[in-house]
């Protein structure tokens, strides 16, 4: 009887995690698509958006506007990060691998935030870091999400 109850409980949490992970895929795809469509994905695009172009009469993005979009994006990315990792730490991988993956994700988010200000105020070079960190985080969260689904479907969890 106890086994049946616990088995039911485990199946239920697996079901919830898999449903959430499917939703997370949609978020990752739509976030990247949104960045592409709002012309803030590629290094050239972000440079144009942040610094403007007098020849094309394009106004540079103000600090207030940057902060407004960053306030929302950072919130969403952090919620994605903490939920993906709350699941990921239950998988069977070694602790060292999990810690490294955890830090890698944090570094990507940190670089993403800082590179916006770097591009605006320091050097155009930071637009490349912006692009790499943004695409990097999308690929990274996609990979972690896939690992989560695989491990929970195959029962490879602690």
């Amino acid at each position: 009887m106890r086994f049946v109850v616990q088995h039911k409980k485990a199946s239920y949490i697996n079901f919830l995690i898999i449903m959430y992970s499917i939703g997370a895929y949609f978020f990752i795809f739509s976030f990247t698509l949104y960045k592409y469509l709002s012309k803030e994905l590629f290094p050239k695009d972000i440079l144009l958006s942040l610094k403007g172009n007098p020849e094309e009469f394009l106004e540079p993005k103000s600090l207030l506007s940057i902060m407004e979009s960053l306030h929302i994006e950072l919130f969403l990315l952090l919620i994605l990060y903490i939920t993906l990792f709350s699941i990921f730490i239950r998988t069977i991988f070694s602790e060292t691998f999990k810690i490294n993956t955890l830090f890698f994700g944090a570094v990507l988010i940190l670089f993403y935030v800082l590179s916006i200000f770097g591009t605006k105020y320091l050097s155009d070079y930071f637009s490349n870091i912006y692009f790499i960190s943004l695409i990097g985080f999308s690929v990274y969260s996609f990979a972690v999400n896939t690992i989560n689904i695989y491990c929970f479907l195959m029962g490879k969890v602690k």
């Binding site: 207030l64 902060m67 407004e68 960053l70 306030h71 950072l74 919130f75 952090l78 990060y81 903490i82 990792f85 709350s86 730490i89 602790e95 999990k98 810690i99 955890l102 830090f103 944090a106 988010i109 940190l110 935030v113």
Partner: peptide
């Protein structure tokens, strides 16, 4: 230990979120 490290990193990154809110 891993859970605590996750909390720690999340808390550190969350400070940036708080600062954007204060600025706005």
């Amino acid at each position: 230990r891993l859970l605590f490290i996750t909390f720690l990193i999340f808390s550190f990154l969350f400070i940036f979120q708080i600062f954007t809110g204060i600025y706005l």
